[in-house]
Structures are given as structure tokens and as C-alpha cells.
Design a protein around this nucleic acid. Structure first.
Lengths: 205, 205
DNA sequence: AATCGTAAGCGTATGCCGTACGCCTACGAG
DNA sequence: CTCGTAGGCGTACGGCATACGCTTACGATT
């Protein structure tokens, strides 16, 4: 009976993400989002309780877009690799939002569905009980850490160059390692690390 | 010749960490830190360029306290486990500072020394070249991700309980897995996941 | 067609925040 | 004893999240 809502939470999240992608995470504020929507600042509070909730909506928008259907693939390793890659790609499409995505990740139903899919594949692979819990948590930990290393490192590739220039006397192996790292692309690094985790799961005691 | 400094950066970092530990991360501000030191707000700017630099100092204080000497141990796996545990313990001692620690981790010389130590052990274990880069990055990714999962999850143990209460129809395996997870302590989870990564490194192709 | 309760939308104001800028002052070298 | 230097501080500004109360658009009811 009363005046109908003119916006959905999804539209608000989309506006916020537009601001973040265009002007950076620091530019995100209730004011900038309201301006993006052509509304007054306080009108936003009819849709979200506070700024944190708005951030949560942005993360939902990002993570719920992940395809969580179990992909075809010869091996369970390949299937998990595809699942992990989908999250990485989706998050990587909004690099400015990465810190938000990490902080509010637990608000996303998409990530729950993703975990469910991974568990399904692990079960297929014969991983059971507490072992399966550990495998899931290890995969999730690696995924979160690797995404952050990729996007919040000391400015990506520039950082490895800085490390390569470290005092050899104090950091002999770091310098050498950074030299090798320069030859590795971000994709190789991500998938190489993931392969290590998958081998560790396969080689269960 | 001029007036000597009355504070060190270390003292400022300590004051900031005190505020964080006592009143939470949200309470951290130039004003609260200055008050903690008994100085005026603006006096702080003689020591740090801006708030970001202050946060960096806090992280240095936390991470540079990690013992990065290569520990004794029967196997390289055990040595790396000890090294990783030291970081986890040190970070875990200041849970309110965890988000800061993750964001500014690259400012810490301590983490560089830690990486150097890990590389030393890996080299001893016969891991070489690009393979060693991948192993280090995988360990670091896991470490970062696991620490965050532990401290920024949906309120730790409470979260797993919430997951266990999920609609069984939609998340059959998550519900079951969360049941198993309740039996696992944080330590078992961390070390179990780390063991997976270490097995993956050991089982190199 | 007229009415009216309800919730949408907005304006104003408060109290934080980081920090630019300029003044005053304690210090130690000469 | 003097004086240049740098430490320390007071004030002020613009931007932030948000509490609160007014105004207005709507559609169900009469």
C-alpha cells in the first residue's frame, strides 16, 4: 500500500562496485554510492543498515557470480583446479575490491556453494571424514592466501624486482629465488601452488 | 644541536599496538595513539608521515618479533612446521591486529628473513629452481590464508556451528563436514593443512 | 473520486576522522 | 650568553558515517 521501493539491494551493490572499479576502494563511501545512484545519501539507509552491510552486498555480488557447478574433467584434480580458477578469475576481475572480498567472504552464499562443490569432488575422490575437512580448509586457505599475494603483494611484479635487489649477503636465497620468480607468470604461480596442495591431498597417509 | 627526539618509532608502534589490543582495531587513530603516549596528536607527525606508516610500524613490531633462526629438527618438514608455527603464534597473540598484519605484511623485514629461512630449509631438502619458488609461495599463501581463516572467519567456532545448521537439502556435504570440523581444534586444523602442503612439496614430480 | 496510513526519500546536524599550516619553545653548538 | 634548528602543539578544514525528524508519493479503502 505504501510507496514502493524504487531500488533493489542488487542495484545498490552494482553501483558501489562501479564506484570501486572506477575510482578505487578508497573512493567508496555512502555519499559516492548515493551520488552514483542519483539519490541522497540518507536514502541509502532505507536499503542497508550501515556501511559494513553495503560492503557485504558488494562481496555477495562478486562471489555469487562464481559458477559453482561441478565441471567435467578427467580427474578430480582437474575439476578442483577449474573450481578454484573460477573464484580467482571472478575476484581478479575486480582487483580494487579484493580487500573487501577477503574481509566479508563469509557473507557470501556463493562461497558456501563453492565449498559444497569442492566437497562433492573430494568425496568422489575418496577423501572422507576429518581428512576431508582438512583438505577443504587447506584448499580454501591456499586460495585466499594466493589471491592476496597476487593482488596485495608489494605491487605485483615490481615487488619481486625489489626483492631481487636485496643485499645478497643477508638474503642470498631470496635474491636467487626472486630471479627465478621473474620467469614465472602469475598463472603459473597460482596453478603451480595449487598443484602442490592437490598433490598433498592425493598423497594422504 | 637542536632539540633531541624524545620518542623512538618503536615506542610509537608499541603504543599503537597497546591501543589495538586493549580497545580493538577500530579504536586506532592518530588521536588515541597520541593520547596513549601523552602527547598531542600533531606531535606524532614528527615521527610518521601518515596513518598508513603508523600501521606499517605496528606490523613491523609484530612480525619482526618472529624468531627466524632455522630450528633444529629431524626432518625439513618439522623445521618448516616450527617456522610456520612461530609466525602463527606471533600473529595470533594480537588477533585484533590481524587485518593490519595481512595488509602491510610486505613492509616487514621479519617476513623477509622468515622467507629466507624457509628457502634455506627447502634447499637443504633438495628443492631447487622454479620448483623452490612455487614451494615458498605455496607455503606463504597457505600461511596467510590459514591465519585469516582462523581469525577472520564468521567468528571462529561459532561459524562452524552455523554452517552445521545449514539446510541439509542444499548443502548436504557442508553440514556433514562442519560436524566433523567441530571435533577438530584450531591447532589440528592449522597443522593438518600445513602437513598437506608439505606432502605436496615432498611429492614433487 | 476523495481520503489517509504507511514507508520512501531527504535535509540538517553531530561528532568523529586525518592532516595542512603556523606558532612557540627547548635545546646544544658556538 | 646567543641563536639557529628542529621538536612539539593549537587551530582549523574538509570529509566521513549516521541519528533524527520532516515531507512526500503511493495505493488500498471508502
Amino acid at each position: 500500500m505504501p510507496r514502493p521501493r524504487s531500488l533493489t539491494q542488487g542495484q545498490i551493490a552494482a553501483a558501489a562496485l562501479t564506484v570501486i572499479d572506477r575510482d578505487g576502494l578508497a573512493a567508496l563511501s555512502m555519499r559516492t554510492v548515493a551520488a552514483e545512484l542519483g539519490m541522497s545519501t540518507m536514502a541509502l539507509y532505507r536499503y542497508v543498515g550501515d556501511r559494513g552491510e553495503l560492503e557485504g552486498l558488494v562481496v555477495e555480488l562478486v562471489l555469487d557470480g562464481v559458477d559453482t557447478s561441478v565441471p567435467p574433467g578427467a580427474s578430480w584434480q582437474e575439476r578442483i583446479t577449474v573450481l578454484a580458477g573460477r573464484v580467482r578469475d571472478r575476484v581478479g576481475a575486480h582487483p580494487e575490491a579484493v580487500p573487501l572480498t577477503m574481509t566479508h567472504r563469509h557473507r557470501s552464499a556463493g562461497l558456501l556453494r563453492w565449498s559444497e562443490a569442492v566437497l562433492e569432488v573430494l568425496t568422489e575422490a575418496g577423501v572422507q571424514g576429518p581428512e576431508r575437512v582438512l583438505a577443504l580448509r587447506a584448499l580454501l586457505s591456499y586460495l585466499i592466501g594466493a589471491i592476496q599475494l597476487e593482488h596485495l603483494g608489494p605491487l605485483s611484479g615490481e615487488g619481486t624486482a625489489a626483492i631481487a635487489a636485496l643485499p645478497r649477503a643477508e638474503f642470498p636465497r631470496m635474491a636467487e629465488t626472486a630471479g627465478h620468480a621473474l620467469l614465472l607468470g602469475a598463472d603459473e604461480e597460482f596453478h603451480g601452488g595449487l598443484a602442490i596442495v592437490l598433490r598433498g591431498i592425493a598423497a594422504r597417509t
